[in-house]
Amino acid sequence: MYVLQVPGGRERATCDLLQKMLGDELVGECFVPLFESMRRVRGEWHREQRRLFPGYVFLTTPDIVRVVQRLRELPFFARVIGGHDERYVPLSAEEVAWLQALTNVETHTVEFSQGVIEGDEVKVVKGPLRGQEAKIRKIDRHKRLAFLEMHMFGRTKVVKVGLEIVSKR
């Protein structure tokens, strides 16, 4: 699995263009990971999906060199992350496992989690963050978000995902 950097907001268009230009034999799967969050609109909470990694597209392909050659034909900038000296490095097995553990495999979405605060510790009782409490660095209870620290793209990133704290003890 490889990661492409694209302009923010053009992630879905990039997947569609690559699928159209290269076909199914070169593009196994092209997706944009999402996360569910809650947003307050006119006093009511609504569930919405937002991009987990804005500006990045995930791609599986047997021939990354041909994909890179075709990226130059796109009407906007796109490049493969981790490419040095004509070598393109896929995501490590650990990064892929972390991504697959958190996201729904069919929809590539990190679903909304629920948790409680016991003393000064967060305990997730429902959702994909269950068992991942050690990676939570910060919680915004008002916006219902958790900030996770993870190693991705060769560096440490802070990623937000949906987490509602239902009680505090």
Rank of each mutant, 00 (worst) to 15 (best):
Tyr2Leu: 10
Val3Arg: 10
Leu4Phe: 01
Leu4Val: 06
Gln5Val: 02
Val6Gly: 03
Val6His: 10
Gly9His: 00
Arg10Lys: 13
Arg10Asp: 12
Ala13Asn: 08
Ala13Glu: 00
Thr14Gln: 07
Cys15Trp: 04
Cys15Ser: 08
Asp16His: 15
Met21Lys: 09
Met21Ser: 15
Leu22Trp: 02
Asp24Trp: 12
Leu26Asp: 02
Val27Met: 09
Cys30Ala: 03
Cys30Tyr: 03
Phe31His: 12
Val32Ile: 05
Phe35Pro: 08
Glu36Ile: 00
Ser37Ile: 07
Met38Gly: 08
Val41Ser: 00
Glu44Val: 10
Trp45Gly: 06
His46Ile: 13
His46Asp: 10
Glu48Ser: 15
Glu48Leu: 12
Gln49Arg: 08
Arg51Leu: 11
Gly55Gln: 09
Thr60Gln: 14
Ile64Gln: 12
Arg66Tyr: 11
Val67Lys: 00
Val67Pro: 04
Val68Tyr: 02
Gln69Trp: 14
Arg70Phe: 11
Arg70Gln: 13
Leu71Trp: 01
Arg72Ala: 15
Arg72Asp: 15
Glu73His: 14
Glu73Ser: 13
Leu74Arg: 07
Leu74Ala: 09
Leu74Gly: 15
Pro75Asp: 11
Phe76Trp: 06
Phe76Tyr: 09
Phe77Trp: 15
Phe77Gln: 13
Ala78Gln: 05
Arg79Tyr: 01
Val80Asp: 15
Ile81Leu: 15
Gly83Pro: 14
Gly83Gln: 14
Asp85His: 09
Glu86His: 11
Glu86Pro: 04
Arg87Pro: 03
Tyr88Gln: 04
Val89Asn: 01
Val89Ala: 11
Pro90Asn: 06
Pro90Gly: 11
Leu91Arg: 04
Leu91Asp: 06
Ser92Val: 14
Ala93Gly: 13
Ala93Lys: 00
Ala93Tyr: 01
Glu94Thr: 05
Glu94Ser: 13
Val96Gln: 07
Ala97Tyr: 06
Asn104Ala: 10
Asn104Met: 00
Val105Lys: 13
Val105Gly: 04
Val105Met: 06
His108Trp: 03
His108Glu: 12
Thr109Glu: 04
Val110Gly: 05
Glu111Arg: 07
Phe112Gly: 09
Ser113Gln: 00
Ser113Asn: 01
Gly115Asp: 00
Glu118Asp: 06
Gly119Thr: 04
Gly119Met: 04
Glu121Ala: 07
Glu121Pro: 01
Glu121Gly: 03
Val122Met: 08
Val122Leu: 12
Val124Ala: 07
Val124Glu: 00
Val125Ala: 00
Val125Arg: 04
Val125Cys: 01
Arg130Val: 15
Arg130Asp: 10
Gly131His: 03
Gln132Lys: 06
Gln132Gly: 00
Ala134Met: 08
Ala134Gln: 11
Lys135Gln: 10
Ile136Phe: 07
Arg141Asp: 10
Arg141Val: 13
Arg141Glu: 09
Arg141Ser: 09
Arg141His: 05
Lys143Ala: 05
Arg144Asn: 03
Ala146Thr: 01
Ala146Arg: 02
Ala146Gln: 02
Ala146Gly: 03
Leu148Trp: 06
Glu149Gln: 11
Glu149Phe: 02
Met150Leu: 13
His151Ile: 14
Met152Leu: 14
Phe153Tyr: 07
Phe153Glu: 08
Gly154Gln: 08
Thr156Gly: 11
Val161Gln: 06
Val161Asp: 04
Leu163Asn: 02
Ile165Gln: 04
Val166Tyr: 05
Ser167Pro: 01
Ser167Glu: 14
Ser167Trp: 13
Ser167Cys: 08
Ser167Ala: 01
Lys168Met: 05
